[in-house]
Design a protein around this nucleic acid. Structure first.
Length: 276
DNA sequence: ATGGCCAGTTTGACTGGA
């Protein structure tokens, strides 16, 4: 776990932003509440909430003092941001940022939410899974990344804020982000075109917060339910925080908290927390 | 070597996840 700010860095401590694909907020409600009590992060970005907005369990999180910004749909996808103070300029989906001509096929799936917290623009993403390399869903994922780049470019052009772009990217950028990379060379989430699409987005000026602090392999944020994956540490690092330069320089930690993955009936993902 | 689990809905059978 990340330590509390020390004397040395206390003047630079500003906030923690966590990202967690919970695989249904209703099923994981009590785990998220418990986690927030132990980890009172300023901002929590959730993915795969899997519930329409009117059925989202707001109250228990509001009772913890959080403001909720939610963008959900029935059964699939769904993103949310919880924040300890109100956020400004909250926007759901791609369309209002980049216009309808690019995004018609994308905003039916609720995967994008952004807002400004204490002068930092938070972008919370649930990138399409892609199913299998070469499938229709795979090509949808690649097109989605192209629109994401336009979206982020537009946000960067139009704002003075630094960006924290986080979420479930469904891409492991490097071989060391996968437990057995040699056997996954053209696997979904590791294929060259997916990695190229994500790397291309990062060229607009974003850096991986986790890799500021850790060069090692073997650090994962998702483990398959089916394979006994967690027990064998057969995982992937696919949940990321990408930061613009000043935030990257300011960052003082980025850690993966594997404790929730050890619980009974866990999400298959576990939270990742950046502190700056 | 293979496939294995989980959540939600279309419910005891599908889709989608990754």
């Amino acid at each position: 776990m990340a330590s509390q700010p020390t004397i040395k860095n206390i003047n630079t401590y500003f906030m923690k932003v966590a990202s967690w694909n919970v695989n249904s907020i209703r099923t994981r409600q009590s785990q998220v509440i418990d986690w927030l009590k132990n980890n009172p992060v300023e901002v929590l970005c959730l993915q795969e909430t899997k519930v329409i907005d009117q059925d989202f369990p707001r109250l228990p999180f509001e009772e913890l003092g959080y403001h909720l910004y939610i963008f959900g749909q029935k059964a699939y996808n769904g993103v949310a941001i919880f924040s300890q103070q109100p956020m400004e300029d909250v926007t759901m989906g791609f369309t209002s940022i980049v216009g309808e001509s690019l995004t018609q096929e994308f905003d039916e799936q609720k995967r994008v939410i952004t807002g400004i917290f204490q002068g930092v623009r938070i972008v919370n993403l649930y990138v399409p899974n892609g199913s299998e390399v070469g499938s229709e869903k795979y090509h949808y994922k690649l097109r989605w990344f192209k629109v994401l780049k336009e979206y982020l470019k537009k946000i960067l052009e139009e704002s003075t804020q630094e960006l924290c772009v986080c979420g479930d990217f469904n891409v492991a950028l490097e071989d060391k982000d996968i437990y057995d990379s040699k056997r996954k060379e053209n696997h979904i989430m590791a294929s060259p075109l997916e990695r190229e699409a994500l790397r291309d987005i990062l060229t607009i000026g974003l850096k991986d917060g986790f890799r500021k602090f850790n060069d090692e392999g073997g650090h994962f944020s998702w483990w398959d339910y089916r394979t006994g994956g967690f027990e064998r540490n057969r995982g992937w690092r696919i949940d990321h925080h990408y930061l613009t330069d000043k935030l990257y320089e300011k960052a003082i930690s980025c850690i993966i908290d594997i404790a929730p993955r050890k619980l009974i009936k866990p999400s298959d993902h576990t939270p990742v927390i950046v502190e700056f």
